[in-house]
């Protein structure tokens, strides 16, 4: 199972096994990581699952498109590697992925 590293804004690190086909958001919810709220449960409606993909991983993960891209523009403190974590599907290739979580989702 791919391992995803989550780093909260205060530096707390989590390592989580996330099944292929699941999402980076779901991995955080399963492991009760507070920095991701995911109020809409992954339907790309809330922008409360915002994360910053580690630069080394950004190319592999890819850029946001469509609705997600528009939402990110208006998220709190967006950065070039911002993604909505519910829109990142976990694949074998993402084993080792590092994402940082923003200070606040509001």
């Amino acid at each position: 199972m791919p391992i995803i590293h989550y780093i909260e804004a205060d530096g707390t690190e989590y390592e989580a096994d996330v099944v292929v086909g699941s999402t980076v958001m779901q991995g955080a919810v399963d492991n009760m990581i507070d920095g991701i709220l995911a109020e809409c449960g992954g339907s790309c409606s809330c922008a409360t699952c915002h994360c910053y993909v580690d630069e080394a991983w950004f190319e592999q993960v890819g850029e946001a498109g469509g609705t997600e891209k528009i939402m990110l523009e208006m998220a709190i403190d967006p950065q070039p590697t911002s993604r909505l974590s519910c829109q990142i599907q976990v694949t074998e290739e993402l084993d080792g992925l590092v994402v940082r979580l923003p200070e606040s989702q509001y």
Binding site: A47, T67, I70, M71, E73, M74, A75, Y106
Partner: peptide, 13 residues
């Protein structure tokens, strides 16, 4: 209109 939605949330708060 996802953009307007997030703008509206901020206008309110």
């Amino acid at each position: 209109r996802p953009k307007e939605f997030l703008v509206a949330k901020q206008l309110l708060s």
